[in-house]
Every structure is written in C-alpha cells, then in structure tokens.
Design a protein around this nucleic acid. Sequence first.
DNA 1: AATGAATGAGCCTTCATTCAT
DNA 2: TATGAATGAAGGCTCATTCAT
Lengths: 202, 202, 202, 202
Amino acid sequence: MSPRTKIQLESIKEARKEQILEAAFQLFSIKGYHHTSINDIAVKAKLSKGLLYNYFKSKEDLLNKVVLFAFKDTTEMGASLLESIENLSPEKIFKILIKSYFSMLQEQEELMKLTLSLAVQISAIPSVHDTMMQVYHILLGQIEVVFKGLNYKEYQKEAILLGAIMDGIGIQYMLDPENFPLEEMKEMIINKYIDNENYTKK
Amino acid sequence: MSPRTKIQLESIKEARKEQILEAAFQLFSIKGYHHTSINDIAVKAKLSKGLLYNYFKSKEDLLNKVVLFAFKDTTEMGASLLESIENLSPEKIFKILIKSYFSMLQEQEELMKLTLSLAVQISAIPSVHDTMMQVYHILLGQIEVVFKGLNYKEYQKEAILLGAIMDGIGIQYMLDPENFPLEEMKEMIINKYIDNENYTKK
Amino acid sequence: MSPRTKIQLESIKEARKEQILEAAFQLFSIKGYHHTSINDIAVKAKLSKGLLYNYFKSKEDLLNKVVLFAFKDTTEMGASLLESIENLSPEKIFKILIKSYFSMLQEQEELMKLTLSLAVQISAIPSVHDTMMQVYHILLGQIEVVFKGLNYKEYQKEAILLGAIMDGIGIQYMLDPENFPLEEMKEMIINKYIDNENYTKK
Amino acid sequence: MSPRTKIQLESIKEARKEQILEAAFQLFSIKGYHHTSINDIAVKAKLSKGLLYNYFKSKEDLLNKVVLFAFKDTTEMGASLLESIENLSPEKIFKILIKSYFSMLQEQEELMKLTLSLAVQISAIPSVHDTMMQVYHILLGQIEVVFKGLNYKEYQKEAILLGAIMDGIGIQYMLDPENFPLEEMKEMIINKYIDNENYTKK
DNA sequence: AATGAATGAGCCTTCATTCAT
DNA sequence: TATGAATGAAGGCTCATTCAT
C-alpha cells in the first residue's frame, strides 16, 4: 500500500488531538486538574502516555489547549447566535442570550466547572491566564454588541457587569445545584433589564 | 522546676495555631491548596512540619480551619456593621454594605482568592463543602436583612442574586485586578438598587 | 512537710516503673511493638513522654525490660509450682505443668502473643535476644526437673522437645484461637507422655 | 519501530516480579517486615521505588505475594514428594517427610524466619491472615494423608499436633541455630512416631 | 508513530527523642 | 521531678516526564 499522504496524516493527528482534548476536558471538569493524572487521560483517550507527549508538550500545555478547545464551541455558538438573529429586536436578543446562558449552565455543567475552576486557579498556573483572558474578551465583546443594540450609554461597563453576574450565578449554581433557584434568577435578571416596567419590587 | 502553667501553654498554643492558620491562609490564597505543601506552610509559619501536626490532624483539616479562620473577621464585621447602624435608613445601610464589600475586595484580595478557589474546588474535597456552606448562609442572612429593610417582596431571592453578583465581581476582579473597573461597578450597582430614579441608562 | 526519704522515693520510682511496664506490656501484646508508639504508652501509663525517658533510655530498652517483667510472673509461678508440689508423683507434676501451661495459653493470651512476637523478631532487634534466651533457659530448667523426676534418660532433650511442642501449640492457637482444638491437644500430649498405656492410636 | 511484543513484555514483567519478590523475601526474612523499607527492596532488586508500584499496589500487597511466592516451592515439593513415593510404606513416607522438613529448616532458614515472623504478626496485618491460612491448610492436608496411611484414628488431630511440633522446633531453631540440637530432635520424633518399639525412654 | 517500563523528586504523615521551662 | 512542645529523619506512595525498543 502506498504511504499515507501528508493530508491524511494531518487529519489523523487532528483527530487524535481532539480525542485527547475531549478526554482531558471531561476529566479536568469532573475530577479537577490536580486530581487528573496524565495516565487517566491517556487511558480515557485510548492511547499511550508517551504518544500523548507527542501532541502536547506538558500537562500544563494540555490544560491551555483544553481551555481553548472547550470554549471553541461556546464562542462559535455565541457568534452564530448573534448573526442568525440580527434582525430581531435587541430585547429579544437579550432574552435569547440570557436563556442560552442558563440552559448552557444546566446542560453543560462540566464546561462551567472547568471554566470556573480554571478562572480561579489562574494565579497558581500563570500560563493559563492569557488563554482565559483571550476567551473572556471574545465573550465580552458579544455581550457588548447586545447592550449597544439596547442603546445603553455605558454598554461596555454594562457588559462587564452582566458578565460578572453570569459568573456569579454560575459559581453558585455549581456549588449547590440542588438548591440554587436557577429559574427564578433567570426571570429576575430578564425583569431587571428588559421587562422592568412590569417589575414591581414591593 | 515545674512545667509551664496550663494558661501559659494555652496561650502559646493559641498563638501557634494563629501563626499556622495565617501562613496557610496566605499560601493557599496565593499558590492554591494543591500547590502549597505542608512544608511550605511550616517554613512560612517558622516551625517544623511535625509540630504542625500537633495542631491540625491533616492538611485537609487545616484547610477547613483556615476557611473558618479567614471568614471569622468577615462575618463578624458584617454582624457588627448591621448592629451598629440599625437606626440608619435601609438605603444608607445598603450603600455601606456594598462599599464595605468593595473595599474588602481591594484590601483583602487574598481572602477573595481563597474563597473563590475553594468554592470551585469543593467537589474535589468534600469535607470543605459544609464549612463553606455554613459561612455562605451566614453572609446570605445578613444581606437578606437589608433587603427586608428595603421592603423587597422577594428579599430572599434578591439576596441570592446580590450574593451572586458579588461573587462574580470578585472573581473577575481577581482575574485581572489591573483592568477591572471596580469603582464603576460599585456605582452601577448602587445606582441600580438605590439611586435608580437618577439613573438614566441611555 | 519534710522532704520524702530516699526509700520513699525509691518505692515511688519502682511503682512508676511498673506502671510503665504494665502499660507497655499490654500495648506491645495487643498492637505489636512496631504499632505501639511511645506516646501510646505514656498516655496509658498516665505520665509524660519525657518522664518515661527518665526510667527507660529508649524504646528498645523498654522492650527488654518488658520481656523480663512479663516473664517474672511466669517463671516465679513455675518455680513455686515445682516447690509446692515436690512430694507429688512425677506423673502428677507433669500433668499439672501441662495443664498450667494450657490454662495460661487461654487466660494470658497477651503474654503468649508478646512472647511469640518477640521470639520471632529477635533477629530484627538483636538486643532482645539475650533477654529472651535468659528467660528461655529458666523455663527449660524447670521442665528438665520434671523429666528427670520421670526418669527420662535424655531428660535435657526431652525438655527441649516439649518446650518446642508448647511453643508450636502456642503459635497455632494464637493464629486461630476459634478453631484450634486446644483441649484435644492437651489430652493427646498427656496421653503420649503419661497415660500411653491407655493410648491406642489405631 | 514498533514497541516490544506482548510476549516479550510479559516475560520481562515476570522476571521483574520475581526479582522484587526475591529481594523482598530475603529482606523481610532477615530484617523483618517493619524494618524493611520499600526503598531497601527497590535497591536490592535494582529498580526504582516507583517501578515497584507498577507491580505491587502496596507494601502489604507485596507481603502477601511474597508469602505465596515463598511457599510455592514448599507446597509443590510436598505434593510431588507425596506423589513420587506413594508406593512406599507409610512409615518410610513419614520418615522422608520429617527428614525433608528438617533439611528445609537448615537449608531455607530464611523461609522459616519469614513464616514464623508473619505467623506472629498476623493480628497486626489482617490481610496476611488469609494468605497464611491458605498455605497452612495445604501443608496440613499433606500431613493428614500420611497419618491416614499410618492408620491413625485421630489422623486429623495428629496432623495438627505434628504441625505444631514442627512449628515449635522451627521457632526454636531459628532463635538459636548454633545450639539447638536439630539432629537429635529429628531422631526423637521419628522414634516416637515410628520406631517406638525400639525406643526405650529410660 | 507508538508503547509503557522506568525514573526520581516530591508529597503527606508518623514518631522516637530532646529540651526549655 | 515533670511536662509536652518541638524537631527532623524516615516511611509509603504518586505522578509528570523520559526513553529504549
């Protein structure tokens, strides 16, 4: 048989990489970075420890790549969401964005865990900082667009605040998924930002 | 000669304990729990590894005690704050609470880092969960009191939301202290909750 | 009050020593030498670790003293037994000796455990060897007297063999006290040595 | 190049395992289980501590495997002995068994030391109990066969007693190999069981 | 490309022994 | 005489990383 072409090789490599990233992502999310060993990942990804080091030069490197990989879907989803709905009213877009976030919280608990656990451990593993910041600003930009559409003067700071709120809700939901009133929080936020004419606090 | 009196020993022990807790607190905050070794703590607290185990029966036990220690000031501060100002208007109290929180963020960066890093790692170290939850509910109760004073119907859920907002801001400030607009966030929150008659978003 | 006399002091010291020896003996027997810490002993003997080192210069020293202490009763009992019954027939004496040994096995399981565990660990802790040998020869001498009384020509070797039999039974009883047929073994031995005219093997 | 074949790896692993078992066996026998460190074993087996844990999951696991390893020869020898001589008279078989045991005592002092030291430490390390009991019952069964052949009515109890005698002799020989009259003991036992018509005690 | 045996630094923890009081 | 705080060496075990095959 003729040797595999370079392109074939490339795609095999790419597939392997995804295999590893997927395995690492799940394990990091569930067990935490420190409690996941390279061996665990190799077993889950069905290859050898040695081969893993052909693709990622260290555990830390792998971690960084996992962050980018994990958020790839998220940011892409956000971007296509914004594109596909650009002829809707800003209020509708806002609601959709919030609702998307909340369903992601519930459906992708693992991603949230990873995000937050990484966010917090940044000071301990400096190299992840840039990676995280990169992702953060992409997401922030997407929220800004919405606030701009809603004609907020301070759309940048509003975006930052909403980002913080989302983070805070995420962290608390993660801490105690059984008891945290996710649904009510979602409604409160939408009320406060959009339907506040109907929102009587007292 | 007779041995030291019990009272002397007690106070020495108490001092040592604080010495260790303080060292552990700082290291856990800066380097994270997993990256801090018992040896690091012993060196920083200027005693031997062995002695540390006279005071805390394991690294995990120490961690739990650090959490309680770290939040002792915070919860006490909150409680005395609420007491000392109970004849003020709820609006004033709210402002003071928010301002206190924001200055704590700036002044006690380490505490925030620890809080958040622990919050996230709970699933990996179950025994910390109860300790954290205990602290969380004390703080939540204090916020509830304020919202009650402000006559919010849904004061419980408002407290949860505000708690989440605070967490979110904390985490983001922690991620990037240089660039996060702490001052502006503080004003935005006060505006949204209190001075919103003057708050024109557009 | 006048200072305690030297004699009073001596007897206090002696009492303390016994306190420690008794505690150490029990702990060594139950938990084994290696699993018993100096602290365990100090706590059980109700004194401080430091004081313990005034009486015994190391853990190994204490072990040696415990061996002598533990066998003091045994050897004294054996000696007084032989004295008090010297006008009985050798056969009776033999039976009494065997029966005493078997009841000691049941009643003083701890002593047996200690004896055997020490016997076996001698090579690991050389200093105990002499102490044990000393005790062994006293006991052996007592058995020899009996065999002499029974007119055995090879009374010395018979004593050694019986000693070995006793050791072997002790070790096996210790291994599995529930299932080992202690009573039957006792009868078999008496039959083989004394009542063998009645002993039909087939 | 492709990695080593599975068969090659298997045989390397098997060799390594024996290397470790052999080293551990000798050290446990000579220095005792507690005085032998994992590092000692690794050094003696000429491999790293870490690798040792690829083959045995803990020190205690290694201990259990050492017991089985150490007795493999013994039980196999006993079995093949019984097979190869089944057409001999029971008396001859008995003599051969006793003689084999006594030469094993002399030639395999280490095995005896290990056996006995483990026997005694069982209560401290429960997991070894089963392993030891397993081995013990195999040996006991072999002795029973012989006593059955000799037409002993109480062949089971006779087997237990002889087992105890062997143990006792083993322990005492171990304690003082220089002075213990092994040869005479052997003759005494054979006389007592087989040649007792010629055995005049007086 | 692929394996997993092999390494060794580093971790948490225990404990005999010393010593200031 | 009496205490127990303090030490530090040593132990069992884990795991990221390397390398011969």
